[in-house]
Design a binder for these strands. Structure first.
Lengths: 251, 251
DNA sequence: AACGGACATTGCAGAATATGCAACGAGGCG
DNA sequence: CGCCTCGTTGCATATTCTGCAATGTCCGTT
């Protein structure tokens, strides 16, 4: 709706891919250099971008500041932090905290694996719903009706041998997930990585999902499953911290 | 230079302070609701902001993504990470990585203290040059001529009893810092916190500063000084990692 | 040393674009 | 049931942005 703003934001997104020159940016957005220059100047004044040497621009430090401040607001993140850090230290594996955001899962926190071979991911990264453990957990937590709507809106790209590729299969899987209270990703997103996830609840239902991811070369699926109790305990602890109503009986 | 962009960025900065309603934002920027609404819509399309309930807006997830990606680029950060994490684990105290950005120091990485009482700070936060250990280290690393220019451009707000409040004093302090190879902040920024910092060098000189911060209630200045060898070792290790030329002789 | 090129930068005029206003609509509260 | 508040939209205006072309600057080259 606002052209110049739209272009400016596109510039910022371009710069996320690494430093760029003026005309690279101009080409990418499809406007003249001078226009880009003027937008960059405004962005620079707000520290959203920074000049890097004479010919390059890169993202500025305001981004760090804003992102950190915004993350601090996200209540789930703060509440879950202790439990997840503990889980990470006990297991030594990568632990993720993810929430649902229109049609995708988004990682809002991450605790790095202690192993040399790690999974690549990053806070702010988005992941598909149909082939990740966190995605399954988040969608499974929704009422059946919304599950169906979402399931039918997905694209089901076949990313590996095991990827679920149809709404029917997916809905069936969600059913199981909802029943068991956890989800498994058996190399469905990336060939060489397995993952288990569990829901974290707040006062009004599930607000996020916690997961443990392990490269197959480090541990097989059965070994990963042996960590399930730890994961569930951590998710439970985080849920209480988030104000979940009845820590109550397992089920 | 670009009005609408300028306004939009101001909106984003407002939202960094927490969720806001439409007219709060309109009031803050000094434009009509409808204008704010349109800007927000564009921002929303790029995930820079998010609707929160019917009456509120907050920062969106694009910020996390961008900030993380941008941080990954910052070479110093990646190179210093291992050494600083180790330092953090050995000492148990807050460890910061900071670099110089026009007239201020900016924290580009942080490792949290293990103690219950912690220092408040955050990645992306900016700190004054005249009363922080990292500030002193960063400015002391510059050629004397630039030191002077910077020293004379500062404001020297007196934040505590011990804060340095004049360019002359500051330059003398920088002299000492450059000579010793480390800096001390003896409650000069915040009454109750002491700090020591050391420079991290790359191929072409100092690129950042590493620091250890400790609340006085946890350890006194002398105890903090006993960690100096650890700090210097970590800074040295990080420097090598960053491509510093001569790991060589201390001096 | 002078030239040529690449790049950033600026002035200007035209026009598209953003803005403010006012009216409409929806939702909540009395 | 009606009022009031808040979000939303259509429209006319003129402000603001854009593209172009010329200027300036810094480089490497001949």
């Amino acid at each position: 709706m606002s052209q110049s703003l739209d272009r400016a934001l596109t510039l910022v997104e371009q710069l996320a891919g690494g430093r760029k020159t003026l005309d690279e940016l101009a080409a990418a957005v499809g406007v003249h250099k001078s226009t880009v220059l003027r937008l960059l100047r405004t962005l620079e004044a707000h520290r959203f971008v920074q000049r890097e040497g004479p010919h390059h621009y890169r993202l500025g430090t305001a981004l760090f500041d804003l992102a950190q401040r915004s993350l601090e607001d996200r209540d789930v993140r703060r509440c879950a932090e202790a439990a997840l850090r503990e889980l990470n230290q006990r297991t030594g594996h990568t632990v993720h905290l993810a929430s649902y955001e229109d049609g995708e899962a988004i990682y809002i926190d991450k605790f790095e694996s202690k192993h040399a071979v790690r999974m690549y991911s990053r806070i702010g990264k988005r992941a598909p719903l149909h082939c990740t453990a966190v995605g399954k957990v988040l969608v499974a937590a929704l009422p059946p009706q919304r599950r169906r709507v979402i399931a039918e809106s997905l694209d089901y790209p076949k990313l590996t041998e095991n990827t679920i590729t149809s709404a029917e299969e997916y809905l069936a899987e969600l059913e199981k997930v909802a029943e068991r209270g956890y989800a498994v990703d058996n190399g469905e997103h990336e060939d060489f990585i397995n993952c288990i996830a569990a829901p974290i609840s707040g006062p009004r239902g599930v607000v996020a999902a916690a997961s443990v991811s392990v490269p197959k070369v480090i541990a097989g699926l059965d070994e990963l499953m042996s960590l399930l109790p730890d994961l569930l305990a951590a998710a439970e602890k985080a849920s209480i911290e988030c104000g979940a109503p009845a820590p109550g009986k397992e089920r």
